[in-house]
Nucleic acid binder design. Structure first.
Length: 422
RNA sequence: GGUGGCGUGUCCGAGCGGCCUAAGGAGCACGCCUCGAAAGCGUGUGUGGGAGAAAUCCCACCGUGGGUUCAAAUCCCACCGCCACCGCCA
């Protein structure tokens, strides 16, 4: 959530942020009004409460007739306290409700517009010219069959559309990617983590996934658990309700977990293959740092993502995601998009967001320095999302016979130089 | 799943209806002492919110949420978590 003080002082900036996101700027004025009511209600309640505290002490000290007289007054006052407290509580809830609807104050450097209005920051590597090489590229589904690495048919039989099995070299490829990712992250100072993937509402709410993204979250009704769509959720919530030591920042975690997404509203989109699936594994970077270091940290996360794609020898580009396409927590987001030969286009494979204090404020994560306690900033970035990385590797490194060359960096982790038709 | 015990400040730990504005200890910070340190002595030491120009004052917080009461860390109810034993499973 945003800071109420910021809202009071810079209401117009918040309205504008809502506008460029394509969200409701009216909420700002609703919130200002609710906040005003809230503060008045607090003053009213506290006035009676303070009186009651004094009177209660007098009751304790008094005896006999004097006591019964005081008790009469005290009873009236108690009723007054109760009613004003109820008004106060309602005002607090109402303010909070609106506050949670407002998205993070967008970075003025982020491009304004919708999904298509991203800015390409750089293009790295050159897509292969399969025509010049004398054969037509096969897509990952076909390659997956030839290598017996991906089985979408049985995935559909057992679990339905958007499910798949990784088998044989496909399964080993996942382990190799994860091991490479975790080992490079550990070298870079990340703490490796295997988090829970079922979380309570507070964790989901705190990371901002129950707002606009709620329709994509699996919910276990019976037990009120959510299945996380990314380990960003349990990693962010890891330090919930804690005060961190200034000297421990930046704190960097690399979480490996399964991710679950409903993919609502994507019917007919990416129905073939494993580009868009309900369940996949991912290694996610997550940083807790000081607000003033957040922009630099964001660049670092992006650099680690670029290093990974370079190590996989995949042509890709980096885009600055436009305002209308950002998550509610993010003030800015960079996506790395890998070249997918059979689609003739770049597709998102990793993504990094700067959420500043937005999540930390909801999750109550702070740090202490000489001047007091402040909210930390949180940032996240994908190191590797397995299915999409497998797609990129298979399609970009394929040979005419359906075999696939393994990127140099991955060979020590996989144990082979080439994936051969099985 | 059953039974019993327990959740108090940075930590340990007392309190079990009103002088709780939470004892005592440890830690930490500063000061005194010292050539310097340790010990000792003294002072301070949480979070959130509200009012105010400020000094400052007020309110809330003893696992969480309700309730009883003029008054709740303390009594009642529910839930969550931890520990122990038993049962079941791996």
């Amino acid at each position: 959530m945003i800071d109420l003080k910021v809202l009071r002082e810079e209401a117009e900036a918040v309205r504008n942020s809502q506008r460029v996101r394509g969200e409701d700027p009216e909420l700002v004025d609703q919130l200002l009004a609710a906040d005003d009511l809230r503060r008045n209600a607090i003053v009213e309640f506290e006035k009676y409460r303070a009186e009651q505290n004094i009177l209660s002490k007098a009751v304790g000290a008094a005896k006999g007739d004097e006591k019964s007289a005081l008790l009469e007054n005290a009873k009236e006052l108690a009723a007054k306290v109760k009613s004003t407290d109820a008004i106060r509580a309602e005002a607090e809830v109402n303010t909070q409700k609106i506050l949670l609807k407002i998205s993070n104050l967008i970075d003025s450097n982020a491009p304004v517009g919708g999904e298509a209005d991203f800015v390409v920051l750089e293009e790295i590597g050159t897509p292969r010219d399969f025509a010049a090489e004398g054969f037509e590229a096969k897509d990952h589904v076909e390659l997956g069959k030839i290598l017996k690495a991906i089985d979408t048919e049985r995935g559909a039989k057992v679990s339905g559309a958007r499910f798949y099995y990784l088998t044989g070299m496909g399964a080993l490829l996942e382990f190799a990617l994860v091991n490479y990712a975790i080992s490079s992250a550990t070298k870079a100072g990340f703490i490796p983590v295997i988090p829970p993937v079922l979380v309570k509402p507070a964790a989901m709410e705190g990371t901002g996934f129950l707002g606009q993204a709620a329709e994509n979250v699996f919910h276990l009704e019976e037990d009120d658990f959510y299945l996380v769509g990314t380990s960003e959720v349990p990693l962010a919530a890891y330090h919930m309700d804690e005060i961190l030591d200034e000297s421990s920042l930046p704190l960097r975690y690399a979480g490996y977990s399964s991710c679950f997404r409903r993919e609502a509203g994507t019917y007919g989109k990416d129905t073939r293959g494993i580009i868009r699936v309900h369940q996949f594994d991912k290694v996610e970077m997550f940083s807790f740092c000081k607000l003033e270091d957040a922009a630099a940290e964001h660049q670092r996360l992006l650099q680690w993502e670029k290093d990974f794609l370079n190590a996989m020898e995949i042509p890709f580009r980096v885009i600055d995601v436009a305002s209308g396409d950002l998550g509610s927590s993010a003030i800015r987001k960079f996506d790395c998009e890998a070249w997918i030969p059979t689609q003739g286009t770049y597709r998102e494979v990793t993504s990094t967001s700067n959420c500043t204090e937005f999540q930390a404020r909801r999750l109550n994560i702070r740090y202490k320095d000489a001047t007091g306690t402040k909210s930390v900033a949180t940032l996240n970035g994908t190191l590797v999302a397995i299915p999409r990385m497998i797609v990129a590797i298979l399609e970009n490194h394929q040979n005419a016979d359906g075999s696939v060359n393994v990127p140099l960096a991955l060979r020590p982790f996989l144990g082979v130089d080439t994936l051969l038709p099985a």
